[in-house]
Amino acid sequence: MTEVSNVGSEYVGYEYKTKEILREHASLYLDSYPCFGWEEDPNAEVVQERAHIGGYTTLNFRRNRMICNKVELTRLQRNFDSCILEIDRLEKSKATLATIAAILIGIVGTTCMAGAVFAVTAEPPLVMLCILLAIPGFAGWIASWFVYRMLVRKRTEEIQPLIEDKMEELYEVCRKGKDLLI
Score class of each variant (00 low, 15 high):
M1E: 09
E3R: 09
V4W: 02
V4Y: 09
S5K: 07
V7G: 01
G8V: 11
Y14P: 06
Y14G: 11
K19P: 03
I21T: 09
L22D: 08
R23S: 11
R23M: 06
L28A: 15
L30T: 12
L30N: 06
L30S: 00
Y33M: 14
P34H: 08
C35S: 15
C35H: 11
C35N: 14
F36C: 02
G37R: 06
N43T: 05
N43A: 05
N43D: 13
A44G: 07
A44H: 05
E45W: 07
V47F: 14
E49C: 10
R50G: 13
R50P: 00
G54M: 10
G54Q: 10
G54C: 09
G54A: 13
T57K: 03
T57W: 01
T58N: 06
N60V: 07
F61V: 08
N64S: 11
N64R: 07
M66W: 15
I67K: 06
N69F: 09
V71T: 12
V71A: 12
L73P: 05
T74E: 12
T74M: 08
Q77F: 05
R78H: 15
R78Q: 15
N79I: 03
D81L: 08
D81T: 09
E86L: 08
E86M: 04
L90E: 12
L90P: 07
E91Q: 04
S93W: 00
S93V: 03
S93G: 02
K94M: 03
A95D: 03
T96H: 05
T96C: 00
T96W: 04
L97S: 04
A98S: 14
I100W: 12
I100N: 05
I103L: 10
I103P: 01
L104T: 12
L104K: 13
L104D: 08
I105N: 02
I107K: 02
T110C: 10
A114M: 14
A114H: 14
V117N: 05
V117P: 01
F118Y: 14
A119W: 07
T121Q: 15
A122G: 13
E123W: 06
P124R: 11
P124M: 11
P124H: 11
P125M: 00
L126E: 09
V127S: 01
M128I: 15
I131T: 12
L132E: 10
L132Q: 14
L133A: 03
L133I: 06
G137R: 02
A139N: 01
A143Y: 04
W145Q: 07
W145M: 04
F146E: 07
F146L: 12
Y148C: 08
Y148E: 13
Y148P: 13
M150S: 04
V152F: 04
R153Q: 12
R153T: 05
K154G: 02
T156V: 01
I159T: 15
L162R: 00
I163T: 06
E164P: 05
D165P: 01
K166P: 04
K166D: 04
L170H: 00
C174E: 00
K176A: 14
G177Q: 10
G177T: 03
K178S: 12
D179K: 10
L181F: 05
I182G: 00
I182A: 02
I182C: 00
